[in-house]
Design a protein around this nucleic acid. Sequence first.
DNA 1: GCATTATTTGGTTATTTCGCCATGTATGCA
DNA 2: TGCATACATGGCGAAATAACCAAATAATGC
Lengths: 106, 106
Amino acid sequence: MNEQDKLKYHAQAKILKALAHPTRLWMAEQLADGERCVCEFADAVDADFSTISKHLSVLKQAGIVEDDKRGKQVYYRLKTPCVLRFVSCIEDVIESQFKAPGGLDK
Amino acid sequence: MNEQDKLKYHAQAKILKALAHPTRLWMAEQLADGERCVCEFADAVDADFSTISKHLSVLKQAGIVEDDKRGKQVYYRLKTPCVLRFVSCIEDVIESQFKAPGGLDK
DNA sequence: GCATTATTTGGTTATTTCGCCATGTATGCA
DNA sequence: TGCATACATGGCGAAATAACCAAATAATGC
């Protein structure tokens, strides 16, 4: 693995890391249905407003969402909806954990 | 978000987190070409043998790879190859960071 | 059995991440 | 102009993660 590759995998890992948090993953799925303002997330999640804001900031920095201030509210939406395709695969991974290929979970 | 959901997103995030590391991502891609033993990874990566082993352990615990001891060597292979589909999307995300939709990167 | 090779595990330390609190900034309204 | 609402940011302690070293385990050949 050369220097070029290191940069590449580092950049890719950063994107994955941005999604690799329960709250952020949930947010991304919520945004699949359309844009949301920060307050809508705050209502649904039991966390501090600043925490929500920081999670969204992580997603934004990773290039996964983009935001748009309208009046007092900031609306977020998916910039790259393909990230949602991760979920179907993740579910496969989880399923495969419960049925070991050779038999029971020895 | 109820308790059930929390568990669900936590489990999903764990899978993503397992891949969200440059070395582990690279390993997963290597395994796309077929199984590898730990020593083959160790040759290619500039890291301690134990570090490599631990990374593989993370991927295994997440259900992404499975291992198989043959003789002195342990061979790893992808258990759920769909994780590789992540990469094409990640590349889209990275590309979209360099061309803002409305014009230059204002 | 004993040395050797391949891999895993435990311990330690440095770095990163998380979530809260307090504070700062921008917008709208009175 | 002053105040409330909607977010963002900086700081801090706690917890998780990462990488190394040393030691343990397992299989092989002598």
